[in-house]
Computed example of a mutant assay.
Amino acid sequence: MARYAQSERRLLADLLLAVGPDAPTLCQGWTTRDLAAHLVMRERRPDAAAGILLGPLRGHSERVREALAARSYPELVGMVRAAPWWSPVSNPLADAAANTLEFFIHHEDVRRGQPGWRPRELPREQQEALWRRARGTARLALRRVRAAVRIQAPGYGEATAGSGGDQVRLVGSPGELAIFLSGRQRAARVQVDGAPELAAFLRTAKLGV
Rank of each mutant, 00 (worst) to 15 (best):
R144I: 10
R144M: 08
R144E: 11
V145F: 10
V145M: 11
V145C: 09
V145R: 10
V145Q: 06
R146S: 13
R146I: 06
R146C: 07
A147I: 13
A147P: 12
A147L: 11
A148N: 12
A148V: 09
A148C: 11
A148K: 15
A148T: 15
V149M: 09
V149T: 14
V149S: 12
R150L: 05
R150E: 14
R150C: 05
I151Y: 09
I151Q: 12
I151H: 03
Q152A: 12
Q152G: 03
Q152V: 15
Q152R: 15
A153V: 10
A153H: 12
P154E: 13
P154T: 15
G155N: 13
G155A: 09
G155Q: 12
Y156W: 13
Y156S: 08
Y156G: 06
Y156A: 00
G157K: 07
G157C: 04
E158N: 12
E158T: 15
E158R: 15
E158F: 10
A159C: 08
A159F: 01
A159Y: 03
T160D: 00
T160N: 04
T160S: 06
T160G: 07
T160H: 08
A161Y: 04
A161Q: 09
G162W: 10
G162C: 05
S163E: 06
S163K: 14
S163A: 13
S163L: 07
G164H: 07
G164W: 02
G164C: 02
G164E: 08
G165E: 05
G165H: 04
G165W: 06
G165A: 06
D166R: 15
D166G: 01
Q167N: 01
Q167R: 12
V168E: 08
R169K: 09
R169Q: 11
R169C: 01
R169Y: 00
R169P: 00
L170S: 00
L170P: 01
L170E: 01
L170K: 02
L170F: 00
L170A: 03
V171T: 14
V171R: 10
G172L: 02
G172Q: 04
S173M: 04
S173D: 12
P174H: 03
P174T: 04
P174S: 00
P174R: 04
G175L: 03
G175T: 02
G175E: 02
G175R: 06
G175V: 04
G175Q: 06
G175H: 06
E176I: 05
E176W: 03
L177C: 01
L177T: 12
L177K: 07
A178K: 03
A178R: 05
A178L: 02
A178S: 05
A178C: 08
I179Y: 00
F180A: 02
F180W: 05
F180M: 05
F180G: 05
F180C: 01
L181T: 12
L181N: 09
L181H: 09
L181G: 03
S182Q: 10
S182G: 03
S182N: 11
S182Y: 06
S182L: 02
